[in-house]
C-alpha cells in the first residue's frame, strides 16, 4: 500500500503532504527534509527510485526475506516536473513502475483541472489538490487510475477555481516528458 504522498518544490517547500498513517507533525517535516535532501542531489539521468531515507531505513533491514511482502515501507518513488517533486512512499505490494504512472496520472489530472497547471495553481488551490489525490488514493489504496474518472470525480464536487486573476498567467510548455512516450503505459 501507499504510505505517503508528498509534493514539494525545488527548494523543499511542501505543497502537499498526505500521510496515510498518523505521524507527528515534526516527524513529518523531518521526513520531508530527508527525502528532499536525497532527491535534490540526484542527477538528471538517475532513476526515479530513492534509497530509503534514514528515518525509514533504520528498521527496514530487520525484515525477513522469507515472506514476499510486509508492512514496512520499502520503496520511495519520485518524479520531477518543472518546479515540483512528486513523491510516493509505498510498501513492496506496489509496483515501482506502476507508481510512476500513477504520479503521471495525478499530474495529468491536475493539468486537466487547471488547464496548464503550474505550481502557483497548487499553492492557491491546495484543497483541490487534496481532492484530486482523494479521488485516486483512499487510505493508501489506489481507487482510480483512469484520468477521465479522476477529473470527473473532482469536477462533480464543484467548480475548480483558477488561480486569482491578478496573478500572471502560465508560461508556454513543451509537451510531456517521457511520460507520453508510451513506455509507461501502465494504466
Amino acid at each position: 500500500m501507499i504510505n505517503a504522498v508528498l509534493v514539494f518544490n525545488n527548494a523543499g517547500q511542501p505543497r502537499l503532504t498526505k500521510f496515510y498513517t498518523q505521524l507527528e507533525t515534526s516527524v513529518q517535516q523531518r521526513l520531508i527534509s530527508e527525502i528532499f535532501t536525497l532527491v535534490a542531489n540526484r542527477p538528471n539521468s538517475a532513476c526515479n527510485f530513492l534509497p530509503l531515507p534514514p528515518l525509514l531505513a533504520s528498521s527496514s533491514k530487520s525484515s525477513t526475506p522469507s515472506t514476499p511482502h510486509n508492512d514496512t515501507p520499502s520503496l520511495v518513488t519520485y518524479r520531477h516536473y518543472a518546479t515540483l517533486y512528486f513523491i510516493v512512499i509505498s510498501t513492496s505490494t506496489e509496483s515501482p513502475l506502476a507508481l510512476l504512472d500513477l504520479i503521471q496520472v495525478f499530474v495529468q489530472a491536475l493539468d486537466g483541472l487547471f488547464e496548464n497547471v503550474c505550481e502557483l495553481d497548487l499553492i492557491f488551490n491546495f484543497e483541490t489538490l487534496h481532492a484530486t489525490l482523494a479521488e485516486m488514493i483512499v487510505g493508501g489504496v489506489v481507487v482510480e487510475t483512469q484520468l477521465e474518472k479522476v477529473v470527473e470525480g473532482v469536477r462533480s464536487q464543484g467548480t475548480v477555481a483558477k488561480r486569482p486573476v491578478n496573478e500572471k498567467g502560465g508560461m508556454g510548455f513543451a509537451g510531456f516528458g517521457r511520460g507520453d512516450g508510451g513506455v509507461w503505459a501502465g494504466r
Partner: peptide, 24 residues
C-alpha cells in the same frame, strides 16, 4: 524540524508549467 515557508524572490518560477519534465 519545521520548514518555514519563505517568499520566493521570483514568481515566474512557480508559474512554470509542470508539463515539461525533468529539470535537474
Amino acid at each position: 524540524t519545521a520548514v518555514t515557508p519563505y517568499a520566493e524572490s521570483d514568481d515566474s518560477d512557480a508559474e512554470e508549467s509542470l508539463r515539461p519534465h525533468e529539470q535537474r
